[in-house]
Design a protein around this nucleic acid. Structure first.
Lengths: 231, 231
DNA sequence: TGTACATCAGTGAACGCGCGTTCACTGATGTAC
DNA sequence: TGTACATCAGTGAACGCGCGTTCACTGATGTAC
């Protein structure tokens, strides 16, 4: 089907992205350099331009691949998970953390400080970037539909403008959940990534907590409470 | 008291740090360059070495100043805040967010992806770095002492190792609070910074939420619930 | 099946640029007597 | 108060380095007839 040339090309493309990822880890996103990638690829620097239009385009490829790798990790973890929504939420959270700890630099490219002078093009990055929150929202909606969640003691008041945003979210993801759950869901989402970032970026002191995995499990317990799971 | 020369030196030092902060904003931490700072200072590049031993030392100065600026912002906000612990927690959270939005690059230096090839020296950065969580823990302990918090429905089980870490935290900050509150407190802490990072680093889509300040207020409500505030 | 042509991967030189850091120096400011 | 010396801010040249990107090119691979 494909010619040898086409296969070689695909292989080289993969090599470039792999080397790019390695450089992310050793030198950081800001220092990602096509010349250095070319060196590791064993090729003269201008040759890389046959594959990638510019340094920024390579960054975008890595961003898109990264969101997809993370999305795959979460989706795969959920495929093997039990039906219980509480447990599925834990499984998804653990998958995010495990992936981030395995690929700290790649995670940093996606969720760390923005790379100066580079803005990820929305057309290419939004869809993959939305996969994790989409998966989480599905779990939230399932928990709600199954009557597993206790609503707020006092009604959650949301302005018309923000209620409109919440309605858009519901539409986009095809959900049927109340505003209070959207509010809690967004909180759980950002809290989850906050905990993972603190862990990956080493914001707790080096040895403050003896067992960070256990600490994360406590965080998951707390997030389940926050979402409203009845015991 | 001080000689003109000493005063000029102090002024130049401040200028260097100010310019460094500006470069953080425009070019990012990884691209912070002593030559560029010298250029903006209107001085030949080698002159900067009279003030700063190396590029990394300048980074460390900015990190320390950053933690202190954030710590000051939180402390000052709390000075003017009411006694109610719930409100104090909100005030502290808003202060963190406001500072981060006003100084996104500086915030990114402190809480974003690590700068490749640079590690902040613990001796200088730990004390200032710990100020915000110290302030939060005091609020948590006050809320607990005032009987404002509901404990967990089911007991929180913590391994001996992690319980030891929790005990160390209690000692270090002179607190008298149960393990479940340390667990929730750490969660609130990382969740708060997760929400602020999502906001500052633009991880929500550009226009997903009509009013991010209001969204953050909902997050604060949720964090208060998570901590255990009775209504 | 063989040939002529088109496509394309990779080369090597060049462009103009910026970086951190060292060093010997000049000239102004500060200090001890 | 005046002078001799020490301190120190800033200069300018140099070191060796890496960067993104363009361009004309060679030679191998693929394709149309």
């Amino acid at each position: 089907m494909s010619t040898p040339r086409a296969r070689a090309r695909a292989q080289t493309m993969e090599d470039i992205k792999r080397i790019g990822r390695e450089h992310l880890a050793t030198h950081g996103a800001a220092a990602l350099s096509l010349r250095a990638v070319a060196r590791d690829l064993g090729v003269v620097s201008s040759a890389v331009y046959r594959y990638v239009r510019s340094r920024d385009e390579l960054l975008t490829l890595l961003v898109v691949d990264g969101y997809n790798a993370l999305g795959d990790a979460v989706d795969e973890a959920l495929v093997g998970a039990p039906d219980d929504p509480a447990e599925r939420l834990r499984v998804a959270g653990r998958a995010v953390r495990a992936w981030a700890l395995a690929e700290p630099a790649w995670y940093g490219l996606l969720f760390g400080s923005p790379v100066p002078g580079y803005e990820a093009p929305a057309e290419q990055t939004v869809d993959p970037g939305v996969r994790v929150i989409a998966a989480l929202l599905r779990v939230f909606a399932d928990a709600y539909a199954a009557g597993r969640l206790a609503g707020p003691a006092r009604p959650v008041r949301v302005s018309t403008a923000l209620a409109g945003s919440f309605a858009n979210v519901r539409d986009e993801f095809g959900l049927d959940v109340p505003d209070w759950l959207v509010s809690r869901g967004v909180s759980v989402w950002s809290a989850l990534f906050g905990a993972v970032s603190f862990d990956v970026f080493d914001m707790y002191g080096r040895d403050t907590f003896a067992d960070r995995t256990e600490l994360f499990e406590l965080m998951l317990d707390n997030l389940l409470d926050l979402l409203g799971f009845r015991d």
